[in-house]
C-alpha cells in the first residue's frame, strides 16, 4: 500500500520532472517519507515522462538499467529496471553536449539495438534477434536528480532511471557476435574505463529479451524504430567540463561527444 506523505503520485511526477527540467537536485522521495511500491514508482516515471511528451518530446526508445550483477547486488535487487528515452535526450555522435542541462552527469559505455519490428512479451532469443535491424556502440549520460546521486530502487525508477542523454555511434549489421566485445572509454584520449560487453547480463542480447518482458508486464510494446540501450559494460565516470568522451568498441567502431565548457 502506497504511503504518500502528502499529495499524489502525479505530484511526485511533477517534482522529478521539474528537477530534470531545471537541472536542480532534490531530496530522495524515500527520504521525504514517501513509501512507494515498484508499481507506484513506475507510475511516477510514466507520469513524469508524459509531462515531457506534453511539451513536445517524442519517445525514441528505452534504456535498461541494473544489467550487471555487481550493480544488482549493490542495489539489493534481482531484476533489471527500465525507462523511456526521448528525442530531447539524444546527442548526435560527435556533437557537443550542453552540460548546463545536467546536475552531476556521469557517462557509461553501452551497446544499443535498433528495432525493425515491435517486440513484447516472453520472447525467445531468436525472436529478439530477428527484431533487430542493427547494433551500435553507445554512450549513456546518466544524471540522477537526487542529491549526491543517492537513491533507493523506487527513487531511481521514479526518476526515469537517471536517464538524461545518449549518443549512438554508427549502426552496424547485427550479425556481429556482441557477447564479449572489448570496450574502452576515453576522456581526452586517455582510457578511463575498460571492460567487455559480457558485463551486460553475460551477453547484451539478454537485455533485449528482458526489455521485451518488462514491456509486456507494463502492457506495452517496444516499437519498430526504437533504440534499446542494453546497459552499461563498466562503472560510470563523472563528466568534466570541456572533456572529449570517446568509446571504442571491438568490431563495432566508436561513439563520441564533447562536453561544453559550462557546467
Amino acid at each position: 500500500m502506497v504511503i504518500l506523505k502528502n499529495g499524489t503520485l502525479a505530484d511526485l511526477a511533477a517534482i522529478v520532472d521539474a528537477a530534470a527540467e531545471n537541472a536542480s537536485a532534490i531530496e530522495q522521495l524515500s527520504s521525504q517519507g514517501h513509501e512507494l511500491s515498484l508499481a507506484d514508482a513506475y507510475t511516477v516515471q510514466q507520469q513524469s515522462v508524459a509531462r515531457r511528451l506534453q511539451r513536445g518530446e517524442q519517445q525514441v526508445g528505452i534504456k535498461m538499467g541494473f544489467t550487471s550483477r555487481a550493480k544488482m547486488i549493490q542495489m539489493g535487487v534481482s531484476d533489471m529496471i527500465w525507462g523511456p528515452l526521448t528525442d530531447a535526450m539524444a546527442i548526435e555522435d560527435g556533437a557537443e553536449l550542453d552540460a548546463s542541462r545536467f546536475i552531476h552527469p556521469r557517462v557509461e559505455p553501452e551497446i544499443a539495438f535498433l528495432l525493425k519490428k515491435p517486440l513484447t512479451g516472453k520472447v525467445s532469443l531468436a525472436e529478439a534477434m530477428s527484431a533487430v535491424e542493427a547494433v551500435a556502440p553507445a554512450l549513456e549520460v546518466i544524471d540522477s536528480r537526487y542529491r549526491n546521486f543517492k537513491f533507493s530502487l523506487q527513487d531511481v525508477i521514479a526518476d526515469n532511471c537517471s536517464s538524461s542523454g545518449f549518443t549512438v555511434g554508427a549502426w552496424q549489421k547485427s550479425n556481429v557476435d556482441i557477447g564479449n566485445l572489448g570496450m574502452v572509454m576515453e576522456f581526452d584520449g586517455a582510457p578511463v574505463q575498460i571492460g567487455s560487453s559480457a558485463a551486460i547480463l553475460g551477453n547484451p542480447w539478454r537485455s533485449l529479451t528482458a526489455a521485451a518482458r518488462l514491456a509486456a508486464e507494463a502492457e506495452t510494446e517496444l516499437q519498430a524504430g526504437w533504440i534499446v540501450l542494453a546497459g552499461a559494460s563498466t562503472a560510470a565516470e563523472a563528466l568534466l567540463p570541456g572533456v572529449h568522451v570517446k568509446l571504442h568498441t571491438q568490431q563495432l567502431g566508436s561513439a563520441e561527444f564533447n562536453v561544453g565548457e559550462q557546467v
Binding site: 570496450m183 574502452v184 571492460g195 559480457a198 571491438q250
Partner: peptide, 19 residues
C-alpha cells in the same frame, strides 16, 4: 580491443580488454 570475460561456474568474476 579484444574483450575478456572470466567466469567461475558460469558466474562472471572479471571483465576487461587488451587495452
Amino acid at each position: 580491443l579484444c574483450g575478456m570475460v572470466m567466469e567461475c561456474r558460469g558466474e562472471q568474476i572479471s571483465y576487461g580488454a587488451g587495452q
